[in-house]
């Protein structure tokens, strides 16, 4: 934004200072709309939630300031830890699988050996265009053991597949839905990163006698490490935010999915069926912090590896 030509043309100190002052204000004017919206839709609600979390309102007895008591309760709440543990398990298992599939798919498309690769690409990406609610309802129907796809498979082959919506399998079933939904999205991120790798690197590698897998290992994957880290961060955040899929499946698997299945569901149910807005706000703030910390750790470890190289 600073133009050297303008400062060179006006060597006088006062006018330069004035110009600089004006420039400073012009800068704010450009940032202003964003800052206003940012303050209104992000900062204000967060500040309000923090304020809310410091009170306790009861059906009998009204509202009282309780300081950090809600946070203490949350940290000692086994339901909260169970919910958090569940999304951590989800994160550890589902995210690597999803990103792994996405990586393989993007490398396959990028290899240029694939027949009808654009069709392949669009069909993997398509589930991302399906709203999560619709996707979950659709999968929920297929998961049915009586009239759904699983039921049909059982009938057709005379086998007894495990019920996807039973207590012990439901998390894996949700993981399957989420993977199906987001593989295409992550694949696209990886593919975009692969496309910007200079092709002369491949030529040089080929001249040096490197095979396709060597190129993948030593050129492609290091080159898209940044994209992988970004996708990883998105997925970490997404896992901690898990809400739509279990909340919708709850209507068909009410006993397998509890009201505190994920931290977000817990916060939601606390405030909307229990009117415990204050406690719910405390849970939301804690989850926000946990998510920020873990996302930061992922980013840090990703960029450190880059620095080491």
């Amino acid at each position: 934004m600073t133009t050297t030509s303008s400062t060179a043309r006006t060597p006088m100190r006062t006018s330069r200072r004035r110009a600089r002052g004006r420039q400073r204000w012009i800068g704010w004017a450009f940032v202003g709309p964003f800052m206003a919206v940012f303050a209104l839709v992000l900062v204000a609600p967060v500040v309000y939630s923090i304020g809310l979390s410091l009170f306790r309102e009861q059906l009998v007895g009204g509202t009282a300031f309780v300081g950090l008591e809600n946070y203490g309760t949350a940290l000692a709440d086994p339901k909260f830890w169970e919910a958090l543990g569940r999304v951590v398990l989800f994160l550890v298992v589902q995210v690597p699988i999803m990103l792994g599939i996405a990586l393989v798919a993007s490398l396959a498309i990028d290899s240029a050996r694939l027949f009808a690769s654009s069709f392949f690409r669009i069909s993997i990406f398509l589930p991302y265009a399906v709203p999560a609610v619709v996707a979950t309802l659709m999968w929920g129907f297929m998961y049915g053991t009586r009239f759904g796809l699983i039921g049909n498979l059982n009938d057709a082959f005379g086998i007894e597949l495990p019920a996807p919506l039973s207590g012990s399998w439901v998390l894996a079933s949700i993981g399957n839905i989420v993977t199906w939904e987001f593989v295409g999205y992550n694949m696209l991120i990886f593919y975009a990163a692969l496309r910007v790798i200079p092709t002369d690197l491949y030529e040089a590698a080929a001249l040096d006698g490197a095979g396709a897998f060597r190129i993948i290992r030593n050129i492609k994957i290091p080159a898209i490490r940044g994209a992988i880290v970004i996708a990883g961060i998105f997925s970490v955040i997404g896992s901690f935010q898990l809400f739509n899929e279990p909340n919708i499946l709850k209507s068909i698997a009410p006993n397998a999915i509890s009201t505190y299945f994920t931290p977000n569901m817990y916060a939601y149910n606390l405030s909307f069926s229990g009117q415990q807005f204050n406690y719910s706000a405390a849970i939301a703030i804690i989850m926000g912090l946990v998510t920020a910390v873990i996302a930061y750790v992922v980013q840090l470890s990703g960029s450190r590896k880059e620095a080491v190289r």
């Binding site: 839709v41 309000y48 939630s49 977000n264 916060a267 405030s271 706000a281 939301a284």
Partner: peptide, 14 residues
């Protein structure tokens, strides 16, 4: 989503 949750909470609080 976060904003939604926060706004909902804020609304409820206000």
């Amino acid at each position: 989503r976060w904003a939604g949750v926060a706004v909902a909470a804020a609304l409820a609080g206000s």
